[in-house]
Computed example of a mutant assay.
Amino acid sequence: MLLIVLAGNAVLCFVGWELAGFSSWLLIGYAWERPPATRNALFAFVTNRIGDAGFMLGIGLAVWSVGTLEWAWLAGDGSMGRVTIRLLAAGFVVAALVKSAQLPFTPWIGRALEGPTPSSALFYGSLLVHAGVYLLCRMQDLLLQAPDLMALLAAVGLLTAVYGSLCGLVQSDVKSALVFATVAQVGLMVLCCGLGLFPLAACHAALHACWRAYQFLLAPAYMHLVRQPARPSPRWLANWRWGYTAALQRFWIEPLASSLLTRPTLALGRDVRALDERFIDPLLGAPRDDEPAPARPAGDELIRGHGLAGRALFAFANRLQALENRLLLSDGGTLGRHLRQLGHYADTVEALLEQPRYLMLMVMATFVVIL
């Protein structure tokens, strides 16, 4: 996060952007032995790759159209066309909306609560969820040149604020209620950015980060601190059957996102694994899991090659063994005969050095060299 804030250009900011997202993914899947944790980590990982693609699109368009990646010069000198400005800004806007969990990319932050509570406080209460707002504030000069894109930002921020408020009213656990309250507040920050109130959005982000981090860290103690039952949903929402059901189901955005992102990714992973097991492993010689364990070969044959690569290595090993037998191990081998003769000479020298007079001579020679 410090790298994101202190970076003076888009590339260095993207490095911090990726490191923060990678850390978030690791913490969501911290309890890797639990299938829900790994599924939620995958969901968050795939969703954030959309934002990374937008960030990379913005970097590429900046190099092509502006010729620099410094934040101070990214807005250009006024000579860029309307389409170029909107495409350049749209890439960074998509990255900001995904990282700050704005509609339609909100579902991933609810899955991110699978991680430990301290990581939730850091990433989804104070730091990471405000990175998108910080990026929008960085892009102020560029966004002011695209008023239609700012209108879109205002609409997305308003809808997200309403969505987060309604979903937060029907949550039954503290962390979920806090994270949807966070989404609503960040939606208001994006709304301020869309209205051109960038200083107000920055001040709101700083104040909200401090307060929300404190609330998340205190979340496990609420059940001991609060002596009364949780407040029920407002009467107007409870009497509004369709609205209450939609808020309870989070407006059915999560199943839709899971169908569009997680399921295709898992299907692709299964296809790649099947290709690896049925084609790559036999080609490289790795035994398949469904094969029975081979019986121990008779005689001196201790290794059996699998697949094309295994058979080739096995044939090469047989050739090397034959060469070794001919040169070293056979009785009439030339190299073996010379080695045995050399060993005989070494034994003779060793026997001479073991005699006392030669040993004293070696000690005296050593003292002469030292002196």
Rank of each mutant, 00 (worst) to 15 (best):
E18D: 07
N48H: 10
L12N: 06
R82N: 12
A41P: 05
A72F: 02
T38F: 05
I50E: 00
G81K: 04
W25K: 08
G76S: 13
V83I: 07
P35Y: 11
T47H: 00
G76C: 08
W32P: 02
D52Y: 03
R49P: 14
W73S: 12
W64T: 11
L87T: 06
V66Y: 06
A44L: 02
L27R: 02
A10K: 01
F14W: 08
G76D: 03
A53N: 09
A31E: 00
S24M: 13
F55I: 01
F55S: 04
W73T: 08
W73L: 09
L74M: 11
L19I: 15
F14T: 07
E70V: 00
F55G: 03
T84S: 03
T47F: 01
S23N: 14
I59S: 07
L69E: 04
G58M: 10
L74P: 01
W73F: 06
A37T: 12
G81H: 05
G29S: 12
I59V: 14
A72D: 04
F55M: 13
N48C: 04
F45P: 07
Y30G: 01
T84P: 01
L26N: 06
W32I: 12
G78D: 03
A72P: 02
L57V: 11
F14P: 02
G54E: 07
I59Y: 09
P35C: 10
C13L: 13
G60H: 07
W71I: 03
L74V: 10
R82I: 10
L19A: 14
S65E: 12
D52M: 02
W25F: 06
A72T: 04
R39S: 13
R86S: 13
F22N: 05
A72H: 01
E33M: 09
L27Q: 03
S79K: 02
L57H: 05
V46N: 14
A20W: 06
Y30S: 01
N48M: 04
G58A: 14
G21P: 01
L74Y: 09
S23W: 13
G21Q: 03
V15F: 10
L27A: 01
G58H: 10
F55V: 05
A31T: 02
A20E: 12
S23K: 02
A75W: 13
A62F: 13
M80Q: 15
N48T: 04
F14D: 01
A62R: 00
G67I: 06
A37H: 15
